Simulated scan of single mutants.
Amino acid sequence: MSASSLPPHRIHIKRGRPVSVTSGASDFLRANDKIAALLPAIQRNLALQRDCEAVLSSLFELCEVMQLADGQLVLAASNAAIATKLKQQCPNLQLKLQQRGWQINAIRIKVQVKRVIEKPLPVKQLAIPETAIQALSNLEKNIEKTAQNADLRAALIRLLSRHRQSGSEK
């Protein structure tokens, strides 16, 4: 049986999102001693991440467990405002984690600014019924041609021309 035909194993990484790992990758991790030695630490950090999320659900969405060493928990916050809010919750978090069996004597917070990739704004797709277009066209033709109505006429002309352009592209 080849590695590609084996069913993928499911592991949870960061905030409980399932990620597929093929059997070949699992075999590689088991075979490589240096990487395999990291697996218990990763599993521990993931369990600690889940417990932190359970204690501070809405606030912890923007945070991550970085490290737990010598009883000191290091958390990463996405910005200074989140770090400040998290710092206020540290005594409560520490107490709740200790009640869950974690040996945590101190909590340290680091601000880890991540590069934000802005999503392009969606293009508005407004569908105006044909009867409305006809009514606007009649209004533009029949409106008095005065200085007071000049801006309204110009807006109607732009609206109708845009609609005609988008209508011809369909």
Rank of each mutant, 00 (worst) to 15 (best):
R10H: 04
A80W: 00
S4R: 10
I42A: 07
K85N: 08
S137E: 14
L56V: 05
G24M: 02
E140S: 13
Q112I: 14
Q88Y: 14
S4Q: 09
A81T: 10
L86D: 02
R44Q: 10
K96S: 11
L29Y: 04
I109A: 02
E118H: 09
N32F: 06
D70T: 09
N79D: 08
R158E: 10
P129A: 13
I107F: 03
F28V: 05
L136A: 12
K87T: 12
S23F: 07
S57L: 14
L152Y: 02
G16C: 07
R108V: 12
K170I: 13
P91Y: 01
K34S: 12
I35Q: 10
A76P: 08
K87D: 14
M1K: 09
A54R: 15
P91I: 05
Q103F: 15
P120D: 05
I13D: 02
Q112T: 12
S4T: 03
Q94G: 03
L121N: 05
L136R: 10
Q72F: 03
H163C: 07
R164E: 15
L73S: 04
K96Y: 01
E118K: 11
I117M: 10
I128Q: 03
S26F: 01
A36M: 11
N32E: 14
N92W: 05
G101P: 09
K141E: 12
L56Y: 08
C63E: 01
G24H: 04
S5M: 01
Q88I: 11
A154P: 00
E169L: 13
C90I: 14
E144M: 09
S4W: 02
N79Q: 06
R17Q: 10
Q88M: 15
L126I: 15
S168G: 07
R44H: 12
E64Y: 00
I133M: 15
G167M: 11
Q165P: 00
S26V: 11
K119A: 06
G16E: 06
A36V: 02
M1Q: 10
K85W: 06
Q67M: 13
Q89H: 04
K110G: 06
L97M: 14
E118D: 03
K124I: 10
K170F: 09
E61K: 09
L152V: 09
K124N: 03
N79C: 04
Q165S: 14
I13W: 04
G24P: 01
L86C: 04
A41V: 06
T22R: 03
K85Y: 00
Q89L: 05
K87E: 14
H9V: 15
Q43W: 01
K85V: 00
I133A: 08
I42R: 00
F28L: 14
A127H: 13
R100S: 15
Q98P: 07
R15T: 03
L136G: 12
A83N: 12
Q148G: 08
I128K: 06
T22N: 11
A31P: 01
Q94F: 07
L159D: 06
A76E: 06
L126R: 12
S57H: 15
Q43A: 08
D70Y: 09
Q165F: 05
F60M: 07
A83Y: 05
